[in-house]
Write a protein that binds this DNA or RNA. Structure first.
Length: 752
DNA sequence: CGGCTAGTCATTTTT
DNA sequence: TGACTAGCCG
């Protein structure tokens, strides 16, 4: 296939800023790859002067593989990597400039949470005042904006507390010799800003910078790129604002919208021809995304065949939905289609269960992505924690994790005292283990256990930095007694864990060091930055189950988007925020445009959530698909379910609304569904998406789920409400994180 | 110390 | 519904 004129222009563009607006399926990777090849082949740019940044290892790997095929050896000198691994590589070389030692490690989210919990404990901040996850989110988002603990502005009490946590968290990170994901970017920016010589080196080295998925960059990443291309401005970014789906993770869509302002004189090239999907799918997806305001109008087109209409299937329950999808998959299989060409996308991981069950029952091979990722499994994290402690004895979090795994009779009280003891002396916990004065805080027997643990780790550390990782791991698993402990348990769970450990051993066996740095360090760096989709194998003969987020960048002939219900997709937490709703719509667009031949979208009237039923209304996104492009299959059973629900005079608010609103055409009639939207908009962002209690329990203006405003605490929503003589006794979850019990009228609470 | 129970809470999405 | 926690007891 040749390049089309727009692609050709993008490939041949010379110096200066270039924005390639690349619609879904428009051959974006192709353009990047060809452009790199062109720079080298036709514009005499040396491969080592090119930096290409992506978001996933998979994207980077693909690009590299294609370039190696095109360029051969020359491709070796290219720097193609993710943002995070790029920064890690840079920071490894200049750690001293950002206040770290050479053996610093990268903490994943679980590690971060452990450290946050420790900080909350030290600061005496209770769980109900601030959830660890909430604190971490605030801190991570601050880091995405390059905001350090010093600059963290706090204009209310809660943020004040977060600020304290942030400061301590950052101090502790540094003490234990670790960085989190956000630090990798933020500290690299800091490094460049404070050390012009270093920046200069990289500016000179990278004469051409290419950025993939530019719509997903956050502010810190933008700053990084801006610094890197400051002098030559040879920057080429590729992206599509319609596919920006990581706002919640700090992505700033305005980066791409602002590009021409940020880089005056920028050339803009639009790739609007889609090579992936049928006309029908493109138009259907276009119909949905057109409802987003604040986007640059863009019309995708294709020369591909018209194709079949989008199937819209209503189901009674999520179980039936799974069954219908399974049946359809088997029909396709009978038509000699490959399972590898089929995928099921859902909004949240929790939705995968019925599909797994039914697929198992029907004997349909599947593989599932997300959920518990390999490197997040308990046993894998344990093994890695040993390795990390060996590589970096200051790593208190890893030590805390494994000091009693397998059980060595070292309990939480001992651990707590150990931590305080170490903190008081500004030492790491490992250093303190053998200190004889430890006997002042623990009993002699315990001190002996601690010392034994210390000696074991110390033995494992001997020569560790020079040895192959596979040898170290082998020793760890044996000398720690970890495998032995698992093997002695006869449970199937222990069996599974052993198998996973074996998988890890196999993975480590295959690991090849790339540089002359200690292999252990290289391995741990790699582990810190991999995800499961990176291991996605397009040819495996199995149906793919994944969240829509993970589907970005992939394509399948037959796509099933399931759970298309208001409150699920769009997710309940987005319903009251226009920006978030637009993000949901983009997410839906991303999902739809993965389909090459056929797209099926389904929803269920009744769905078990947390063990209780919830009644759903068809997603607005389905309404937004032009009627002539979809074929609605309303199952008889589903209809009788509705009638039955009506006759039961259900207490469920949402169901009663949907009943009133819906007859046969409830999914095509926007007007009729409006009441549902209005009701649901009031009950977002908490445990239940629908108020499930009868009307008499939903009291007046302070009903459960109602959004309220408090003069001091700001916005929030009512979690519980009961009438009393003094007024409405309500429990309010405030956005600032507080949960308060108060009398609504007395506290000056105002419904929003 | 470690195992058990009861009670609480949660589900977006992840480099 | 099921995962996680705090708190209790052997």
């Amino acid at each position: 296939m040749d390049l089309n004129p727009q692609q050709q222009q993008a490939v041949e563009h010379g110096k200066g800023p270039l924005l390639v607006v690349a619609g879904a399926g428009s051959g974006k990777t192709r353009v990047i790859v060809h452009r790199v090849a062109h720079l080298i082949g036709k514009q005499n740019v040396h491969p080592s002067n090119i930096l290409a940044v992506t978001f996933t290892n998979k994207a980077a790997g693909e690009m590299k593989a294609r370039l190696e095929a095109m360029l051969g050896l020359a491709a070796r000198d290219l720097w193609i990597a993710t943002f995070h691994s790029t920064c890690l590589r840079i920071l490894r070389r200049h750690f001293e400039h950002v206040g770290y030692g050479p053996n610093f490690r990268v903490y994943d989210e679980a590690d971060q949470l452990s450290l946050i919990k420790e900080c909350l404990g030290v600061l005496n901040i209770g769980d109900r005042l601030m959830r660890p996850k909430s604190a971490l989110d605030h801190i991570a988002r601050a880091k995405d904006r390059c905001v350090g603990p010093e600059e963290f502005g706090a204009d209310n009490f809660y943020l004040q507390k977060v600020s304290e946590v942030y400061a301590l968290y950052q101090k502790r990170l540094n003490e234990v010799g670790a960085m989190d994901f956000g630090d990798l970017i933020r500290l690299t920016v800091k490094l460049f800003e404070s050390h012009p010589d270093v920046l200069n080196y990289y500016c000179n080295r990278f004469r051409h910078v290419l950025v993939d998925e530019y719509q997903d960059t956050n502010h810190a990443q933008y700053r990084l790129i801006e610094l890197l291309v400051g002098l030559h401005r040879n920057i080429c970014v590729v992206g599509d604002e319609d596919q920006s789906i990581y706002r919640w993770r700090g992505a700033d869509i305005t980066n791409i919208l602002r590009f021409e302002k940020d880089f005056p004189g920028a050339r803009v090239i639009r790739l609007e021809q889609n090579y992936r999907s049928t006309k029908t799918i493109i138009k259907a997806a276009g119909g949905v995304i057109a409802n987003n305001a604040g986007r640059k109008p863009k019309t995708l087109w294709t020369q591909n065949p018209q194709g079949e209409p989008v199937d819209v299937v209503s189901c009674t329950t999520e179980r039936e939905e799974a069954q219908i999808v399974a049946d359809a998959i088997q029909r396709l299989k009978h038509e000699k289609k490959s399972y590898s060409e089929m995928a099921v996308f859902y909004r949240t991981n929790a939705q995968s269960r019925p599909f797994e069950e039914v697929f198992l029952k029907e004997g349909i091979p599947y593989r599932i992505f997300g959920w518990i990722r390999f490197y997040e499994r308990m046993e894998i994290k344990d093994a890695i924690a040993y390795l990390r402690l060996i590589a970096n004895p200051k790593d208190d979090i890893s030590l805390s994790r494994i000091i009693n795994v397998p059980s060595r009779g070292i309990g939480r009280e001992t651990l707590l005292r150990l931590r305080e003891f170490a903190a008081a002396r500004s030492l790491s916990m490992f250093e303190v283990l053998k200190d004889f004065t430890v006997t002042t805080i623990v009993r002699a027997v315990t001190a002996k256990k601690l010392s034994a643990f210390h000696d074991m780790i110390e033995t494992l550390r001997q020569g560790a930095l020079k040895r192959p990782v596979t040898d170290i791991l082998h020793d760890v698993l044996e000398k720690s007694g970890y495998v032995e402990a698992l093997a002695s348990q006869k449970t199937t769970e222990a069996q599974d864990r052993l198998e996973n450990i074996n998988e890890l051993v196999a993975a480590v066996d295959e690991f090849e060091p790339q540089t002359d740095e200690p292999p252990l360090n290289q391995f741990l760096d790699q582990v810190a930055l991999v995800s499961d989709v990176d291991a996605y194998d397009a040819d495996a003969e199995a149906v793919t189950l994944m969240t829509v987020h993970l589907a970005k960048g992939l394509e399948f002939s037959f796509v099933f988007m399931v759970g298309m219900e208001e409150g699920l997709f769009p997710h309940a937490r987005s319903l009251d925020d226009p920006d978030e709703l637009e993000e949901e719509r983009r997410l839906c667009y991303v999902g739809m445009t993965r389909a090459k031949e056929h797209l099926t979208m389904s929803y269920a009237f009744r769905r078990q959530t947390f063990g209780t039923p919830r009644y759903g209304v068809v997603s607005r996104f389905i309404d937004e698909i032009p009627d002539e492009l979809k074929k609605v299959h309303e199952r008889l059973e589903a209809r009788s379910e509705k009638l039955e629900a009506r006759s039961h005079k259900s207490n469920y608010l949402a169901s009663s609304v949907s009943l009133l609103a819906s007859d046969d055409s409830h999914f095509t009639n926007n007007e009729s569904r409006l009441p549902a939207k209005v009701v649901m908009a009031g009950v977002t962002g908490h445990d239940s998406d629908f108020d499930q209690r009868p009307p008499e329990e939903r009291i007046g203006q302070f009903a459960v789920g109602i959004r309220v405003h408090h003069p001091a605490f700001g916005r929030g929503f009512v979690k519980h409400c009961e009438p009393s003589s003094a007024g409405h006794k309500v429990t309010v979850q405030f956005e600032s994180g507080f949960i308060k019990r108060l009398i609504a009228e007395r506290a000056g609470l105002v419904p929003l």
